[in-house]
Amino acid sequence: MSDTLTNLPPDPILERRQQIHERAAQTIGRRTLVSKMYVFALLAAFILALVPLGSVIIALVQKGVASISWPFLHTLPTQPSLISQNAIGGIGNAIEGTVIIDGFAGLIAIPIAVLVGLYLAESSSRVANFLRAITEIMTGLPSILLGVFAYEYVVVPMKSFSGLAGIVALAVLMVPVIAKASEIAFRGVPTTLKEAGLALGARNSRVTRGIIIPAAMPGVITGVLLSLARAMGETAPILLVIGASSGWTWNPMHSMSALPLLTYNYSGSQYPSQRAAAWGVALTLVIMVMVLSLGSRYVSARMRRERH
């Protein structure tokens, strides 16, 4: 019996397993080394990805803080000249213009966008699918195209550069972004909730008002704030249409000033004082954009917490 056992032909599976074990043992050192290097490379790449952010922030703080002061923030710009090269004044009207243009664009875009979002969330007809695809593509279109659009349809007929043209361009820019975000938020509302409402005999509109919108609110608000933040930083569309102003223009039918445009203009100025101030303008803009971006996170987090 024992004789037959020992004389058995070698088990191919066992042998293969043995080989694999040996091979694994031989290569384990190399493989772990490669893996460690790989992991190290990934982490290094991640750090590398953050280097530009760090550099931008350091640059903004280093160069921007110096030019920001209370008068800088609330006074009007003045034009430096050869004899008074440092008289650049403030950026009060640019802040005001940015807020007005962005705010009105938001006021026009939000209701339309939320309704479009609702429509996209509730309908799956062919038309809705098509509109959904178009909306998604719109979110990726270069913003300069909207500048061309606003120029042809607002500036040319009005025969004047105006804040209104900027408002129109930014509103069209914002609608797809908000619509997309709110569609996702509306779709995220559990069907059971909707059905419960409908089962109680409520109409669709009632269910929307009473159930869907409140439930989707955090998502909608996040989308709104993010799109406001994005629109606030846009330079390309307003570059073509809002003109230039050195006064407090409260009327959007006139030329206005805006922070991103001022940053662009100052960065190429012949006056060193304005080139230095470009960083102050940029820092102000970044702070305003960050307040909106971070605000959106805070609001949505807070509303979610309150619900649960």
Partner: peptide, 24 residues
């Protein structure tokens, strides 16, 4: 925190990147 740092990169307006590219 790390993820929001990357998102922060997206929040910086493009004109600021332009300025940074131009000057630095």
């Amino acid at each position: 925190f790390a993820a929001s740092l990357v998102e922060l990169l997206a929040a910086v307006p493009s004109v600021v990147y332009g300025l940074w590219g131009l000057v630095y």
